[in-house]
């Protein structure tokens, strides 16, 4: 455990600090999400009630596409000076690299969501949820994002060995995250639009939780083999 959690925290802290200094990844992610929100807010009439049905899907469009930008950079920046080898020659469990990267990527995407989702609600004149609905909403966003990041981090490490990793990652990632994206969109729609069917949202949340556990454990166990490719 000594060679797992402490190095994982060091790697996550290093990624966050590097981002704090350069602001490259988070800026790109925020610009992308802003662009999506503004484009859709002009494309559809926010005063039309039917448009509110689009909001749950838009939350996940922003999450997935801005998340991919972050995931790509997460490992391509480690290739620059062979940083991955630097981590591999240290007395560090390879899973610690996965854990640290997952944590940093999750924080980046959650930060983007914290900024872009309220903006989305504002521009679409969406009714602000509160109480139990808000708790459900936060849990759904976290579960969906965690599943996406757990798979994305593993595949980003795999794709980084390829010269065209930025093209390869979405190709590998989209089929695998489809279940969690469907569950996340459905659960978000229920909580935001059709609040009477909260029990149905719970089923989707259970599906996401199971997906998260399975793919996090798979990533955790397989990561050392991904590094050896």
């Amino acid at each position: 455990m000594k060679h797992l959690f402490a190095p994982a925290m060091a790697i996550a802290r290093k990624d966050l600090y590097a981002e704090w200094k350069t602001k490259q990844t988070i800026t790109t992610m925020l610009i992308f999400s802003g662009l999506v929100i503004v484009t859709f807010s002009f494309a559809f009439d926010p005063s039309n009630q039917a448009v509110s049905a689009l909001v749950p899907g838009m939350i996940w469009v922003i999450t997935i596409f801005s998340g991919i930008l972050g995931l790509n950079r997460s490992f391509t920046q480690e290739k620059q000076n062979d940083h991955l080898h630097g981590l591999m020659v240290a007395p560090v469990d390879p899973s610690a690299i996965y854990l640290g990267k997952c944590l940093a990527n999750l924080i980046f995407v959650l930060l983007v969501q914290i900024i872009s989702v309220p903006l989305l609600f504002l521009l679409f004149d969406f009714q602000v949820i509160s109480g139990v609905g808000l708790i459900y909403f936060v849990m759904i966003v976290f579960l969906g994002t965690f599943g996406f990041i757990a798979v994305g981090t593993l595949l980003a490490a795999l794709a980084t060995h390829s010269k065209s990793s930025e093209m390869l990652l979405p190709i590998l990632l989209f089929p695998l995250v489809t279940p969690v994206v469907i569950a996340a969109v459905q659960a978000t729609r229920i909580v935001l639009v059709d609040q009477e069917g909260v029990s149905a949202a719970l089923s989707w949340m259970q599906l996401m939780a199971a997906y998260d556990v399975i793919f996090f454990v798979v990533g955790f166990l397989l990561f050392e083999h991904v590094l050896e490719v």
Partner: peptide, 10 residues
Amino acid sequence: GHQSFLYEAF
């Protein structure tokens, strides 16, 4: 190794 393993922003 051939590369420094160092982070340029740091």
